[in-house]
Write a protein that binds this DNA or RNA. Structure first.
Lengths: 205, 205
DNA sequence: TTACTTCTGGATCACTTAATATGAAAATCT
DNA sequence: AGATTTTCATATTAAGTGATCCAGAAGTAA
């Protein structure tokens, strides 16, 4: 795009990554422009606004970047080549490991990125809420597919499975941020999945 | 205490309740003094600081008030007269109904009250984190008591039950705030508890 | 009444917020 | 070279932040 003119002195990708880490740790509102500019390499206000537009625009870009990288732990949910149970198990385990890893802030940015918001930033909150809804849909589709494929009983217990998985999934953010280890989360997932297996149907191999 | 002098013109309890609602909906940091004073009956800064000390002091009082009222849905957890399974079921169902009720902000104040915090307000965050830890302990004690009483198998699945319940419990805040109804949460709890029953032992009546 | 205590309203504190304006510096293209 | 384009650093904007201060009003106790 910008072939001519003075090249920017800071690395835009590195700056975006640094911003993501800060937003991830503190959330949208408590993160100030001053903190952002500082962690992005002491860039000036002019450089910031020229490169990213505004705080909200930067946050939206951060969310997209997050979804394209760390958020990919959710991708099994949309992989129709996977057996539904596998898709959910991989998603849960992958997300648990990711959220509990200490090389970056704990928990999920989509869950905790804008959980405290004043009315004026409703749009930011809605952005993440929509993404969470997408996740719920993905889980529900997986369970319905399992029932349709005859891998899961069609009963009251399995009808509630999507809500259980979604609630558990979103709860992991709180647990991970409060220090629960990946090992503990993984054990909980193993135990939780016996709820699936208890309602599984035998499939002819 | 204050027998003499000019009596305050506003109702301190009503003001505290109004502040609780606002903190509950928006969280600690995004809630400004201006908003607080406004919702507390357009009281003046002087009146505010005389009655509550500071924003943080008010928040701590709000949390105590919350625990003493809405937070009482957790009390079965500490009632040793209840059968452990009952204690957990009542806590989950009571909390689900409370969190999804629309007469006040959705979700749990202890979970979402300070989830987005800058470093300078770490103390506020720690206050709620300690309370969440208390809940986890309560759940764990219940499960351990059930095992000790011979009502629950002692195996890997049941060892993970406390973490499952805690994660699910804290996840309800996200779901309730995103609009999940009490009915759906209740169905999820019913289904989740089959995980307990699948590992229950028969007790001689 | 008089003395004392407490609350109220308004002005104001120093500071931070997100966002601009300006002019010079540094690179590319013709 | 010279013209153009873009970025940079500094200063500055207006509004909002939590928190104080003070004069006066409104009550109680003697």
């Amino acid at each position: 795009m910008a072939r001519t003119g003075r090249p920017r002195e800071f690395d835009r990708d590195k700056a975006l990554n640094a911003a993501m880490t800060l937003f991830w740790a503190q959330g949208y509102e408590p993160t100030s422009l001053t903190q952002l500019k500082s962690c992005m390499g002491n860039i000036s206000p002019a450089s910031f606004y020229a490169a990213f537009g505004s705080k909200e625009a930067l946050f939206r870009e951060v969310v997209q970047h997050y979804l394209a990288t760390y958020g990919q732990v959710m991708s099994p949910l949309w992989d129709e080549n996977l057996i539904p149970r596998d898709a959910i198990e991989r998603t849960l385990r992958g997300s648990a490991r990711m959220q509990a890893t200490r090389t970056h802030p704990c928990g999920c940015l989509v869950v905790s990125g804008a959980s405290n918001c004043s009315p004026e930033n409703e749009a930011v909150q809605a952005l993440l809420a929509a993404e969470r809804q997408r996740t719920r849909t993905g889980i529900r589709v997986c369970v319905e597919r399992a029932i349709a494929r005859g891998e899961l009983r069609d009963c009251a217990t399995t009808a509630a499975l999507p809500d259980i998985f979604a609630t558990f999934f979103h709860g992991m953010t709180c647990e991970a941020r409060d220090g629960m280890t990946s090992t503990h989360l993984d054990a909980a997932i193993t135990s939780l999945l016996t709820l699936w297996d208890a309602n599984a149907l035998l499939t002819t191999p």
